[in-house]
Structures are given as C-alpha cells and as structure tokens.
Computed example of a mutant assay.
Amino acid sequence: MNWQAVFDFAASLPGAERTTHYGGPATKANGYPVVTSAREEGSFCLHIDRDTVEMLKETDPATFWQTPHYAGWPAVLVRYASDDPERVWATIEQAHDAALARKPKRPRKGT
C-alpha cells in the first residue's frame, strides 16, 4: 500500500473527487476531506469522526496513530505498512460514506 493506491481507491468511490486540502493532494466527498497526504513518512491522514479515531487507535495502534498535531481532531494517521490492509480499505469506505451523509459544505465566498 502507498499514497497513490490510497488516493486512487478513495477517488474511485461514488461521489468522490480528487482535490487538495491545505495545499496537498486529497480526496473529498460532499466537500469534506476523506484522505489527505501527511507529513509523517509512511502514513496518510484519514478524516473520520473522533469516536472512530479513538476506537481505531485502541484496537490497532500499529496501523492507526496520531501525533500531537492531530490530537482532538477528527483525523487519524494510517500507516501504509498495515498488517490488515482490508481493514484500512474498509475504514476509507466508512469515512467516505460518512462524508456523503453529511450536509454538503457551502462554497467559500470568492471561490
């Protein structure tokens, strides 16, 4: 697993779009980020609710983790070298579905 595989998978989901988030590559659904690139080598950022973040960190800390930068935010870092890639793919789908279920983001003024 690598960034290109994650990016392509997330972008292939219904209603997903390839875009940017804070200047880096990302996929979004309904205007909300799903996966974004991460500064931390060997990982990408998955945008998912805080309860799920905590559950993922508790059940598989070797795959799902956070730096202080992400603590308290609805986002978790995911290591590409996961022992359970099927769970990673399923979690990306879960984050995507949750983004689609949210009220669409309104465009910012001037864009």
Rank of each mutant, 00 (worst) to 15 (best):
M1N: 11
M1T: 08
N2V: 04
N2S: 11
W3D: 12
Q4M: 11
Q4L: 12
V6P: 01
D8F: 03
F9V: 00
A10N: 08
A10P: 08
A10K: 07
S12R: 07
L13C: 10
P14A: 03
G15A: 03
E17L: 00
R18D: 02
R18H: 05
R18Y: 03
T19A: 12
H21M: 13
Y22K: 11
G23Q: 11
G24F: 11
A29F: 06
A29C: 14
G31K: 10
T36Q: 01
T36W: 05
R39V: 00
G42I: 10
F44R: 04
C45E: 10
H47A: 09
H47L: 12
H47R: 11
I48R: 09
I48S: 12
I48Q: 10
M55R: 14
M55L: 14
K57V: 05
E58K: 13
T59H: 12
D60I: 02
P61C: 05
A62D: 15
A62V: 03
F64G: 04
T67Q: 03
H69I: 05
Y70M: 14
P74A: 10
P74Y: 07
P74N: 14
P74R: 12
A75Y: 10
V78G: 14
A81Y: 00
A81N: 15
D83N: 14
D84I: 00
P85V: 09
P85Q: 05
P85K: 02
V88L: 09
W89P: 00
W89Q: 06
A90Q: 14
A95T: 13
A95W: 01
D97K: 15
R102T: 02
R102C: 05
K105I: 13
R106Y: 02
R106V: 13
P107S: 15
R108P: 09
K109A: 04
K109R: 13
G110L: 06
G110M: 04
G110T: 14
